[in-house]
Simulated assay, not measured.
Amino acid sequence: MLGFHLTQPLRAAGFALCAVVGLTACGSDTQEIELSKVTGDFLKQASGKLTSKVGKGKSDAKAATGQSAAPADPNVLVAKALAATDGPIAIVVRLDTNAVLAMNPVGRNGDHVTWGSAPGQGITYNRGVMTNTRGLGEDLMSSRIDAAVSAITSRNDADYTRVHYYLGDLGQTTELRLNCALRRSGTEKVVVGDIDEAAVILKETCRKDEISFTNIYWVDGKGRVLKSSQWVGQRIGSLAIQNLRL
């Protein structure tokens, strides 16, 4: 397990997000924070192309009631999340359950930075590329992804192997070795929170027999991953990660 502790700014950021978006379940003992409608509105605008599940649908509330709805301004949500801490902050969404978390860095070991949530989940990144998770369920326990990190942060097309490690049902370590292809897929300016940067969009397609997934990264000229959709494992699926401040 990760040996990080939750700092007061991290707890403040998590609880501020709960207060701002009106989440249905929130608190230090909550394992998953359910995505409310207002958070969905925020993610539709902030996460952009992270997932085709997040579209541009309009609410039927106005038509049903004949009154103008008052949706939350995503810029206000972002501003309040940023105000909760002086440091980096990101919104992380588990796409299979629509659970959303505010996360901050809580530990560093060289290029490996661990981000934590107020409820206690953790994700470690190597220069913005996920290396392991904790507290999400069937976690990615560790990985060997140096070639992926190098290609993604240098924004180059490449072919390489990823190796993921999970815990089996009997507590044994299981290995998943995947063949991956990284390809550039256009450019986009990422403007959200304190981020205003031009980015190259990179799509990473990985496969092992019947298992396959695609990760997407928006990487700026400094090699920073501004936002991404990254796969954890077969049961959890992908996480959408939107940085508000780096």
Rank of each mutant, 00 (worst) to 15 (best):
Q234W: 02
R224P: 14
G223K: 02
S52A: 14
P74I: 09
R127Y: 00
G48C: 11
A12L: 09
R134C: 00
R177D: 06
S154N: 14
A148F: 01
I211T: 00
S154V: 13
A181P: 06
V54M: 14
E188L: 15
G40T: 15
T174V: 04
K53Y: 07
T97M: 12
T51M: 00
L140H: 00
A90W: 00
T205Q: 09
P88H: 03
N75S: 02
D220C: 12
T30E: 09
V100M: 12
C26I: 10
R108N: 07
G48L: 15
V38D: 07
S238T: 07
R11W: 14
V106K: 08
A158E: 04
L246N: 11
I201C: 04
V219T: 01
G137W: 02
T39V: 04
D41T: 06
V54Q: 10
G171L: 01
T97E: 02
T24F: 12
Y217F: 04
R127N: 05
V78H: 12
G135K: 03
D196Q: 15
G128L: 15
R155M: 06
V113C: 10
I211P: 00
S185N: 04
R207Q: 05
V149T: 13
I195E: 00
D86Q: 09
L95Q: 12
T133H: 00
G110P: 07
D159S: 08
A63K: 05
E34H: 05
T85N: 14
L167G: 06
K227F: 08
R134I: 11
L2T: 13
K80T: 09
S238H: 13
T187L: 13
L101Q: 10
A199V: 04
L140M: 11
K62Q: 06
A90S: 05
R144G: 05
S36F: 05
L82K: 12
Q45V: 07
W231P: 08
G221T: 07
L95R: 06
L244F: 05
A72P: 08
V93G: 13
T39N: 01
C18V: 02
I195R: 01
K227N: 09
A198F: 11
G223L: 07
R155W: 04
T173C: 06
A79M: 02
D194R: 12
L43C: 01
C180T: 14
